[in-house]
Nucleic acid binder design. Sequence first.
RNA 1: GGGCGCUUAGCUCAGCUGGAAGAGCGCCGCCCUUACAAGGCGGAGGUCGGGGGUUCGAGACCCUCAGCGCCCACCA
Length: 886
Amino acid sequence: MSTPASEMPKAYDPEPVESRWYGVWEDAGSFRPEANDGGEAFCIVIPPPNVTGSLHMGHAFEHSLIDATIRRKRMQGYAALWLPGTDHAGIATQNVVERELAKEGLDRHEIGREAFVERVWEWKGEQGGRITAQMRKMGSSCDWSRERFTMDDGCSRAVRVVFVRLYEEGLIYRANRIINWCPRCHTALSDIEVEHEDVDGELVHIRYPFADGDGSVTVATTRAETMLGDTGVAVHPDDERYAGAIGRTLILPLVGREIPVVADTAVDPEFGTGAVKVTPAHDPNDFEIAARTGLPAVDIFTESAVVNDNGGRFAGLARYAARDAVKEALRSEGLLDHVDEHRHAIGHCYRCHTVVEPRLSLQWFVKSKPLAEPAAAAVADDRTQFVPENWEKLYFDWLENLRDWCVSRQIWWGHRIPAWYCRDCGRVIVSVDDPSSCSGCMSADLTQDEDVLDTWFSSALWPFTTLGWPEQTDDLGRYYPNAMLHTGFDIIYFWVARMMQMGLHFQGDVPFREVAIHGLVRDAEGRKMSKSYGNVVDPLELAGRYGADALRFALTRAASPGHDVPLAEEWVEGARNFVNKLWNSARFVALNLDGRTLAELEAAGAPLPGEVTLPERWILSRLAQVTASVDEGFERYEFAQGVQKLQAFFWDEFCDWYLELAKLPLGEGGASRERAQRVLAGIQSTILRLLHPVVPFVTEELWDRLGGDGRLITARWPEADASAVDETADAAMAAVIEIVSAIRRFRSEHKVPPSKKIAALVVPADTAQGSALSDLDTHIRALAGLDQFGVIAGRDPQPKEQRLVAAGATIVIPLEGVVDIAAALADIDRQIEKHAAELAKVEAKLADESFVTKAPDHVVGAMRTRQSGAQEALTTLRAQRDQLAG
RNA sequence: GGGCGCUUAGCUCAGCUGGAAGAGCGCCGCCCUUACAAGGCGGAGGUCGGGGGUUCGAGACCCUCAGCGCCCACCA
């Protein structure tokens, strides 16, 4: 023991404890799986946070779950590995550094690509350690010797190997397609990087006159400015209204271009006017119509969504200014038919929230089908299971409707695409290593593709690149597939589904056996934490004030798969109180161990000396049950269930009842004291170990002070001792508790001061109860504040006595000098009322013929027991009432 | 337009296979009882969103309505 128990302060102070242990653990190598070398592998890779970010509440929550999972597995003897790392977060990080540059009045284009990337690496160097330092503060038990970064050498090489392999397999290709373009970030985005939002817009109806001057066709559009890029108008081939129009030529207003009317079945005759303006460069549908009907594409926007020279006199106008100008011009030419209100969804960039522009451009794509099908199958046949299962449906739906993934980004921070173009022969060379000459014409005049890959491309490889792939390392063999993954539902598409695809394709097996989905951390009112609400809480700040353990406890106590977690400061305060209670229970135990350690007493173990008492049998029985159920809760990631059960057991049963009851045998000395010490030690030790995955710091500290085996607490995960379960003891103690509570209630209701000792006699429900009560008479006297207590076989109602019915027993309390008759009568009337209501309810049930015949015997039997119990209670109480009233 | 989820005590939520309504926080009394006032003891508070149905029995299962939330969607 490092500190004598007598020096334990009354109030637990987390600060010195939490700042001490992390280093000890790390120095001992206890976060390395090698600490359990012979054990079965159990690996979780971290969902890599942004390298330049800082720890927010969502991380704190997720990490609490991962850490609880990994610490428990470690205690169970697994070679448990929590593999940490960070993500380069392409667009996000680039944006941050660009803002830094802007403060200096600089633009990335001014300093050039090389200098800019250098700048980002510098930034990463300065900021990169922050989040990992914060994780240490929170107690996350990562193996930092294996820490990775998505852009470190190994991961970068892996990305190239994957890209080349997919390219050679025909699963990566380059094509001119309509992609989602962010005019602020100046890059393409994948479909899921676009967030749709309903907005009130307009449906503008424009007349396009025929070239021959004979009439016009009216088209409807939500984006009037794109008419500048129209190269045709499409109608449904069966639409009689336009039967004569197909093949005729229209004059595009404001531009003057001659454009044809074409027929295409993609047109919905019901919508708008049934005639669609076709803008192949700025709308995916139109692009496809154009592809089928041979219409050309005219790009009218710059990369910033400003009208370019193809827009004629509108050139130089930003897209919304152009929209107004186009409408105004059409109006003045009398071609603006009318404008309807129209609510529709428009896409925004998920990084900067700018409205996304569909844009025709040359990009790299990953073919989806061949990768998606095996990924769906692996979940369908349970090689990977989602917890809770209902997220699987979402996963399947997404994979089924997956379109090819645009993976090229026009930014500078990221994995540069390993493709080179030969200036001489135009050949495309895709290669893991930088080529020095063209593989076709041998020319040395090569230029590398300017684009980088989507950040999620490297994330998709995380479960195996972090283990050393493409090298066939020992870690890869040992820890792939990962045991499981903890992550949020918001990145099932971005990340989970893609890891499944890549893992299956490149490793031939799923990346993890289970995916436990957690919810969002919300505030006390259930609102999402966000800057705009101003309800964002800093986890480090809370941990600083209440302890990392308290924050972890508060989060874990509410965590159940798939569900959001509300968090208010009061909850954390409550968790802090819990930790303090734990501290003090240990302090009590420590003060009563005669300088011995938990380990010594546990080793002394069974058989316990002397005769094992009811409270001892009971608490050991309860411990066994609770251990089993906590273990099961953790195993199923039902942390809330496990933690709440443990909390209730520790506080309500162990502290409130057993510790109080133990004070007597501890005072008796001899075998009684020895026995109580061993029981206390066993329970305290088990509680510490069960709690350790959730509140590692305080439990380690207490183990250090009381444990005494010179080892860290991580040694053993407790197993439930099924043989300790003792239902007889459970029932007997339940009765004792009920009887003591009844007497306490009586005292409290009649304001009998604690200093005033009263007497009580109990007529037990049966002989077993009777002997339990007799055995515990001293305890009961202490707990209920009695100076006299006795168990008697029977007693007729007498004047100046009160009767309480509890657990089938009758408690007799002399009233003389304690409570006046009127108050006692009122008390009895309340009890009579309660039991009469119970009897009425039960008898109504038993009078129901179909209940008695159809319900299972044990249910009917239980009902009969309740009936006789209520009847007896009423008989007793009424007789007593007559006595008092008479 | 599809899909998912939620509606239980003042607040946030548990209630797994249908058999006497729970926790934490808050609230109201009484207590510094030598582990803990960050505590102890006692208490109040719910016709489980509405309406149907299945069942001997429904907070739990089915249908339906209402309200809220989230995700997906290239009808211009």
